[in-house]
Nucleic acid binder design. Structure first.
Length: 222
DNA sequence: CCAGACGTTGTT
DNA sequence: GTCTGG
DNA sequence: CCAGACGTTGTT
DNA sequence: GTCTGG
């Protein structure tokens, strides 16, 4: 999954890297972006490529916003499939966090090449605002030791194909919704302080020694 | 027409 | 809310 | 996603 | 445990 991420850097540079021609004022820095917050998304239309604000997560009648959609089902589920066809977007990020289930140790992931990440997303209009969700897939080798899902990260050569405003068949979409190649990402353990969204500082992405687990501190004798 | 399900994640 | 199933 | 709260009544 | 808030 992808449930917390980072957005840093100068908006002008990010806009340039993404090929965005306007809307870059919607880029705001945060080291702790959570579902429900407003995030900049990137869309193409006949006039060009634009950055716009959207609430992260599709509101649902059940509990909690749908802030991820599975690549395996996004083309068939009623909540997502029509938006996949015509409302595709990028959700730009600098990196993202994942928690290792075994010990709740958080890790920060970013691209090895330091470029901005572009998550594959879909969006919808709800009243006077937009909502967006990030598509997830199976983990590549960079991720699999930490988590069993990862966000779909599109390389820049695929952005135009994904953002093409014309309807895309689900077969075409599915061909883009795959794990990024092994070696795309790097990672390191970070402070558990990232868990609380009250914390939002550069220190959240600094490497820490993983906190020993209770079992390591107090091993059970066999 | 109404009834009932609807999404992801993690956990064990 | 909106979609599917019956 | 994680953290943190989680209830009602009446009264002031 | 389950829900809300951020």
């Amino acid at each position: 999954m992808c449930g917390r991420f980072v957005r840093k850097g100068e908006s002008k540079k990010v806009a340039e890297a993404l090929g965005v021609q306007d809307g870059e004022e919607n880029w705001t820095e945060s080291y702790n972006v959570a579902p429900g917050s407003t995030v900049p998304i990137v869309r193409d239309d006949p006039t060009g490529r634009h950055m716009a604000p959207a609430v992260w997560g599709f509101t649902s009648s059940g509990r909690g916003p749908l802030f991820n959609a599975r690549a395996e089902t996004v083309d068939s589920l009623p909540s997502f499939r029509d938006h996949l066809r015509v409302n595709r977007c990028l959700v730009p990020a600098s990196g993202f966090y994942e928690w290792r289930p075994s010990d709740r140790q958080p890790f920060y992931f970013e691209r090895v090449d330091g470029l901005p990440l572009a998550f594959a997303g879909i969006w919808k209009r709800v009243g006077d605002h937009l909502e967006a969700t990030v598509i997830t897939t199976t983990p590549n080798r960079d991720m699999s030791a930490i988590h069993d899902r990862m966000p779909v990260i599109l390389s820049s050569d695929r952005w135009s194909n994904w953002l093409n405003p014309d309807p895309l068949s689900s077969a075409e979409s599915q061909s883009l919704l795959c794990p990024s190649p092994d070696g795309t990402l790097t990672r390191w353990p970070v402070s558990r302080a990232v868990g609380s969204i009250r914390n939002d500082t550069q220190g959240l992405i600094e490497r820490v020694e993983p906190q020993p687990t209770a079992q390591e501190l107090f091993p059970m004798s066999s």
